[in-house]
Simulated assay, not measured.
Amino acid sequence: MELIFCSPISFSSATRTFILSRTESAPDLLIEILSPSSGAIGKVKKKAVYEQFRVREYWFVEPHYVTVDQFLLVDGKYQLAATNYSSWRIESPQLACLSVELSKMFQAANRFEG
């Protein structure tokens, strides 16, 4: 069975940008926005693939529950670092410049729901 993934949001630090251009290495951070139809695939299959390719940090954004699960790669396996709620700010240990105020993000996302 072939897995086909839609592109999640991804970020790479400046130190890995050079690596990306030469070896097509994995990004430092992937952000997956889950939907009811893609949730099971994202949480099981995609997570395993991203872990295999050593994506250092992975966020599961769950709009229905208004949460973001933040996973960090530790010794080749993802560990849940935090479940972040809509009133919190999430920061990436991989990308020091990245900090997201979740209430604003979810508020903006609600404008697109019908």
Rank of each mutant, 00 (worst) to 15 (best):
S92K: 10
R54H: 13
T67H: 00
M1S: 11
Y65L: 07
Q107N: 08
E113R: 14
S103P: 00
V66N: 08
Y78Q: 06
L29G: 08
L80V: 03
L3R: 00
G114S: 07
S35E: 03
G76P: 01
K77I: 01
K47M: 10
E62W: 02
E101P: 01
S25P: 00
P36C: 03
R56Y: 11
V55K: 09
P93W: 00
D75P: 00
F5M: 06
A26P: 14
D75S: 13
H64S: 03
G114K: 09
H64Y: 03
L95D: 13
N84Q: 05
Y78I: 12
N110M: 13
I31R: 02
F5T: 12
T17C: 01
S37V: 09
S99L: 15
Y78M: 08
Q94P: 09
E91L: 07
E113S: 07
E91A: 11
G39Y: 02
T83M: 05
E32K: 05
W59E: 11
R111W: 15
S12Q: 06
M105D: 03
A26E: 13
S25N: 04
V68N: 11
F71A: 03
R16E: 08
R16N: 15
E101C: 01
A48E: 12
S10K: 08
A108Y: 05
Y50T: 04
D69R: 11
F106K: 10
G39Q: 10
D75L: 10
I41H: 08
V44I: 12
P63G: 03
R111H: 14
L3E: 09
K77M: 07
N84G: 00
A14T: 03
R89A: 05
S13W: 03
Y50N: 11
L29C: 13
D28P: 07
L73H: 07
S35H: 01
S10A: 13
K46I: 04
H64P: 00
S35L: 01
A81E: 03
